[in-house]
Simulated scan of single mutants.
Amino acid sequence: MGEPKGVAEGVPIAVRPDPHPGDGRYPIAWLTICAPRNAIPTATSKCLCGRNRSAIGHGKVHALIADHESHRETCPLRTIQEGRAAA
């Protein structure tokens, strides 16, 4: 009962450092676009602040993409995070 055992008995456990250490950032908004060939495109824009919008059709999907990009500047969750980082 000296050393902890791995998956199989007699296999030592090797703990390695995380190869992808986080930098403190994490996603808060997602833009999902589905544009199958020869079909009508659809898109959804979701954010942890509660925003949840969708669009169907070429023109509306392009408008939603632009709206999603502009939401990055006005999202209350994003502005709070940037304020904390600046302090």
Rank of each mutant, 00 (worst) to 15 (best):
D67H: 10
D18R: 09
A87G: 14
A39P: 00
W30I: 09
E69S: 09
T44A: 12
G10V: 09
I40F: 01
E3C: 05
I80F: 05
V11T: 11
C47L: 05
G22L: 06
I65C: 14
I80L: 11
P76Y: 04
D23Y: 03
P41K: 04
P41T: 07
I28S: 12
P19C: 06
S54V: 02
G2M: 08
T42V: 10
A8M: 06
I33P: 01
R72Q: 14
D67P: 00
L64N: 06
V61R: 01
R72G: 13
L64Y: 05
Y26I: 03
V11E: 14
D18Q: 10
E73T: 05
Q81D: 10
V61A: 08
Q81S: 09
A35H: 10
P27N: 08
G22M: 03
T44P: 00
A39M: 11
K60V: 02
G57T: 07
R16V: 14
S70Y: 04
Y26A: 15
A87V: 03
A66F: 04
P76Q: 05
E73M: 07
A87E: 13
V61C: 11
Q81R: 08
H62T: 08
I40A: 02
G50V: 03
R51L: 15
K46R: 15
T44N: 08
I33C: 02
W30H: 11
G24Y: 06
A8P: 00
K5C: 06
M1G: 15
R16Q: 12
C34L: 03
R53F: 03
H68N: 07
P12D: 14
V11H: 07
H58N: 05
N52D: 15
I56Q: 12
G6P: 00
D18I: 03
L64R: 05
I28K: 08
I56L: 07
I65K: 15
V15N: 02
G59H: 06
I28N: 09
C34I: 06
M1C: 07
I80R: 12
A35G: 03
I80G: 00
R51I: 07
A39T: 04
A66W: 02
Y26S: 12
I40M: 11
L64M: 04
K5N: 10
Y26N: 08
H20K: 10
D23H: 12
P19T: 06
D18K: 06
V7L: 11
A29W: 04
H62K: 14
T74W: 02
C34H: 12
A8E: 10
A87I: 04
G83D: 11
L64A: 08
R51D: 02
L48D: 13
R78P: 01
A29Y: 04
A63D: 14
I56W: 01
H58P: 01
G57E: 07
G83V: 00
A66C: 04
R25K: 10
A63C: 02
P21R: 12
G50S: 04
E82V: 02
M1V: 12
R51H: 11
H58A: 11
E9G: 11
G83I: 00
T79W: 01
P12R: 14
A66V: 13
R84Y: 07
R37E: 12
I13W: 04
A55E: 05
H20F: 14
A14F: 04
L48S: 01
D67I: 00
T79L: 15
E3K: 13
P27D: 05
